[in-house]
Amino acid sequence: MSDPLFEFLCRMGDNTLVLGHRVSEWCGVAPVLEEDIALANTALDLIGQTTLWLNLAGEVEGKGRDADALAFRRDVWDFHNVLLVEQPNGDFGQTIMRQFLFDAWHRGYLTALTGSSHTQVAAIAEKSLKEVTYHLERTTDTVIGLGDGTEESHKRMQSALDRLYPYIGEMFFKDAVDEAMISEGIAPDPTSLRAAFDSLLDEVLAKATLTRPDGTFAHKGGKSGQRHSEHLGHILAQMQWLQRAYPDATW
């Protein structure tokens, strides 16, 4: 295993990088102008957070790599984002449901990170938390609004939830990197955040008149980097193309 702190920071930065990329795919084609602008704000926040996490990762690694080098010059197996964030946008409902599930985990995790023993981690978490609190407020309202809205919007939100539900578990899965972070007081035990997540989820789904799927199966392999979905390769092919095609250029 590489340095657990480096890997932990990559996990944080890769989550926001990949999700920011996905959300930015909506730019110019959202259902209504106000949503277009709001989604762009979310993507901008996530890209900003990526820069902070990955720059710190590069610093910790000490091999002269900055956020851009990490974002644009690693291949799939070196990415450590959870599988949830690389899932396709689907329709607007799937995008919002994915964002809501991630925001709900993200807020809980960042809240715990503000108490990190690592001062830079705590500082990034504190800045991010303000943004993510708003993301969660917004996606909560939208999930409720569309779940409770028309028959069609309800149906679409239910199928988005069903589609994404098996990707929740990975966010709360604990492995050796987490153990190392917990023992140094850098990051919380992800399993300890599940109960609060579940009660928020139940509360929101009830207001949204949506049904929580049965089953406890959880896909995993993104966070560890062992087995991503096929989608990540396509994201990287697009995102990294210029840097890869013109390796000598500066932009």
Binding site: P31, V32, F92, L146, D148, G149, T150, E152, S153, R156
Partner: peptide, 10 residues
């Protein structure tokens, strides 16, 4: 986007 606009209005 129609279903979204209609859904939130409903």
């Amino acid at each position: 986007g129609r279903w979204v606009r209609e859904g939130l209005l409903a």
